[in-house]
Every structure is written in C-alpha cells, then in structure tokens.
Design a protein around this nucleic acid. Structure first.
Lengths: 200, 200
DNA sequence: CATTGAGGATACCGATCGGTTTCCTTTCTT
DNA sequence: AAGAAAGGAAACCGATCGGTATCCTCAATG
C-alpha cells in the first residue's frame, strides 16, 4: 500500500522532459520537434513520457505553463524592488542574452505555430499576456501615470514588438529602440500637466 | 518550335497555386499545410506544382515574396498621397479586416515557423522589414522628425507589437493602442523644441 | 487527322509523425 | 531473499510527410 514516494520518484523524469521542451520546443519549434526526438534527448522512453503526459498537446500546454511561470528576464525585472517604478518599467526592455539563440516569446510563437484556436495551450498564452498587462498597469499606477491601463497597453505593445522584430531580423537592437520609445511614452503619461516637470 | 505561349499557359496554374498559399500557408500555417493538400485545393496536381516550384521551400519563398510585394492594408496606407506625412504614419495602424481570421504578419510568422536560419525565405523576411523601415524613415523625414531613423524604428516596433499581440490575444484592439502611442512618439519627435507647439 | 505537349489522377517511395504495446532490466519495499 | 512496480529499449501501428514517376486525357498545332 505504500504509494507515498510515488510523486518523488516520478518527479525526476518529468523535470527532465520539461527541461528538454525548453530546449527543443523553444529552440527548434514545437511542430519541428517530434515526441520521439524529445524523449530521446530527455533520456526518457516514449513509454514514460506518455504515462506522464496525455498527449503532445498536453505536453505543449505544460511547456507553456512552465515558460509563463518562469517569465523572461525583462518580465522578471518588473519585480526588482530596488528600482523605482519608472525604472522597473524600463527594465522590461533589457536585451535578451545572446547565448542560446534568441527566438522570441515562447507564448506568441506557440500562438503562431498552433493555428487551431482550440489548442489547450491557447488559454495559457492569453492568461500570460493578461497577467503581464495587469502587472504593467499596477507599476504604471505606482509611477503616477494618469491612465495606467492605456500606458500598460502601449508598453506591452512595444515589448511585444521588440521581441517580434528581434526574431524576424535576428538582432537585439529592437529592444533599445523600444526602450527609448517607452521612456517617451511613460514621461508623456506622467508629466504633460507639468506638475512634476523637472528644471531643464 | 513555337514555345511562345508557354509562359501564358503556365501562368494560370502558377497563380492558382500562389493564391492558395495565401489561404493555407497564411491561414493554417506553413508547416501545417502539406504540399498534397495545397495542390488539391489549388486544383492542380502535385506533378504540375513540382514542375513550377523546385521544392516546398522554394514555394514558401515565392509565397513570402508575394506577401511582401502585396503588403498589409496598413503598409499600403503609407502611399496614400492625399494624406499628410503624419497621417500616413498613423494610417499604418489601421485595424486589419475582421473577415478571414487575422493571423499576424506572414513574414514574421514564417520566421517563427522556419527556425532554420538558412531557409530561403529568410532573405525575403529581412528585406521586407528593412524596406518598411526605410519607407517609415522617409515619411518621418517628410513629417519633419528630428531623427527619422529612430522614429522609424520606434514606429515599426509598435506596428510589429500590435500585430503580434493581436495574434496572441485574437483581438484587434492592440492596433488602437499602438496608434495612440505612435501619435505621442511622432509629436515628441516633431515638437519638443516648441517651435510648432499649439496653444493649449 | 495526326502529333505534341501540358497537366490531372494516382500510385508509389522512404522517412517520419503521434501514439501504443511488448519485453526485460533495474531498483526499491517488505 | 522475494516480490512488485518503474522505466528503458524497441518493435509496431496507421497516417502523413515531401517528392517522383507512370499513365492517360485533352486541347492546340501542323
């Protein structure tokens, strides 16, 4: 009757599989990665994989949930308590690491690859973007923005655009331009009435 | 030896095939569309398809070239001579038609789907973005922007971001927010010195 | 009318897909 | 030491992939 350790024992293969999805699904694409190849790289048999995940679609959903939870470096910067609200918003546009070829936002890439609007992963994608929007609005409010929701929408657009352009052009400069635009937008949302306008 | 009409006769199937790529490659995704299915929908045999296009990759490149040449509605708005330079820049952010499910930028989607950086389509993608950048800078210069290249980079980021977000969230509102942000950025690039500042 | 070439229909190729099943080894529990 | 469960290796399934080859129809040309 001792099923106590089952979860502990099952943990190892599951983590290895999910770690491999981060490499292959993200690096090579979801459709381009076969279940067999993924299992092999993870050092797991297909048999084990399929008793941990119902189907490839379910595995994709788990992969997206993992990526959503982890977030990008820029997204994690939004929680850096040592920065001012304004600086946190700007830190969103930190250049992605050049190591491990940058391939854009895993959520959005999945939305592009999985044309089917009923794919189980779609929920995760939409939830992630909504959560990011809410977080941006919250920080925007803290920064004193007159309309935090609009600012959040504008900033997420810049972030998404920098990510997409960086993917299409295979360069990271778009993040720098996005950041400069974000600065202008944030200040336009805070100043304008002139009440906080600096000396210069 | 009369090969005079060859091009004319070959035109019909070729156009039918390319028209079908716009439907299937764009609507369902490139990887998700098989050559057999595409030929069938185009009303053409695989035999004919493969004697018009060397391979699926070549067909994809032709599809991308076609989409690049045609451009989106927003991109075509950049040439509307009846509008001022500023209004042309803003017209870039016209909401995409709701008919025929919007699925984002075909170029960028291809960049996401075709992880291989050596795919023949990559050239078309990069060239398209560079051309758009140049056009935006040109119009920005005409509008009197202090730094047209930077403005172009900022605007293309917004445009790309609106497109990507609209795809991920399956809604068109991102274009409205992108447009409002563009207005702020454009005006910040033109005014600022105060020489054209309005009364209010 | 006879010839020629384009092109549709279709079968075929080897490879790979997502997913299932069988067999056997390893390892932990009692 | 004995027994049970986990999991790796690998065969297998039907379906589909990109791509090729065969056969036959049809339409325009001389």
């Amino acid at each position: 009757m001792s099923t106590e350790q089952v979860t502990t024992k099952a943990a190892a293969p599951r983590e290895r599989i999910l770690a491999t999805t981060r490499t292959l699904f993200y690096g090579h694409g979801i459709q381009a990665t076969g279940v067999g190849e993924l299992a092999e790289v993870a050092g797991v048999s297909k048999r084990t994989l399929y008793q941990l995940f119902e189907s490839k679609d379910a595995l994709v959903a788990a992969y997206l949930a993992l990526m959503s939870q982890h977030g990008t470096a820029g997204e994690r910067n939004l929680d850096r308590a040592e920065l001012s609200a304004r600086d946190r918003l700007l830190a969103l546009f930190e250049r992605p690491r050049l190591s491990a070829r940058f391939r854009g936002c895993p959520m959005h890439n999945a939305a592009v690859e999985l044309a089917d609007p009923d794919h189980p992963g779609r929920t995760v994608i939409v939830a992630h973007k909504h959560a990011l929007l809410a977080r941006l609005a919250e920080i925007g409010r803290e920064a004193g923005a007159r309309n935090p929701e609009v600012l959040a929408r504008q900033l997420i657009t810049l972030y998404e655009g920098a990510t997409a352009l960086a993917t299409s052009l295979d360069e990271v400069e778009p993040f720098d331009f996005a950041r400069s635009a974000a600065e202008t937008l944030i200040d336009a949302m805070i100043d304008q009435t002139g009440q906080t306008a600096p000396s210069s």
